[in-house]
Amino acid sequence: MFILNLILKLGGWGQRRLSAIGRATIMLFYSLVGRPQFRKNFPQLIRQIYVVGVQSISIIVVSGLFIGMVLGLQGFHVLVDFMAEGALGQMVALAIIRELGPVVTALLFAGRAGSALTAEIGLKKATEQLLSMEMMAVDPLRRVIAPRFWAGVISLPLLTVIFTLVGIFGGKLVGVDWLGVDDGIFWSGMQSSIDFWDDLMMCAVKSVVFAITVIWIALFNGYDLVPTSVGISKATTNTVVQSSLAVLGLDFVLTAVMF
């Protein structure tokens, strides 16, 4: 009886997930497919890049700096035991470019911008703004969802690039300027082990994939929520939890596929 119940619950859960994925795909399809309307959507796009991207810069820069500094500090104390502090630059750069840069930026982005987007869309839905747009013969998918989607897909990779560079400089700040690793060795060790195509492009591909994932989850949770205060708070939590898990899972898959 217990096992039957468990299977029933699992089945119900799976069905709900699948139908949610279906609805999310339909949402994305209708928002992105069709004749683009640059004249009307471009100002919205700029505005959304401002909200989603520019306003996230401070948190990205500060966390990038500190993560780079911590990596420099930790790495130095391990490497110095093997007389290999020359490899510090390469260690910091590899760690940030391959993993921390795209992943941490995506996680911060989900918390900072994703949850805000969910709440905004959810509130627009709760106050019938989306419905009234529909009745004004304006497709909210094209006018509300699409610009936010593109803004996220453009912003997150840009933020990742900023995070990565700031992080490496954070590592350099601690390693070179504070702990006395040679400047030349720091940079040349890095340059010899980082490949433009393998590592930087990998970082870019990852962050584009994460951007699509996070922004899609955030927008769908907002668009699909139950328009009550409980529904909105649940949806924002869902956005952060689901997109964090999705980013970490996808990171593993992408790393396994591409290396």
Partner: peptide, 12 residues
């Protein structure tokens, strides 16, 4: 930042 990464970090 991207150009700096490419030149200074990847040594492109």
């Amino acid at each position: 930042c991207g150009v700096m990464l490419a030149l200074k970090v990847a040594g492109l």
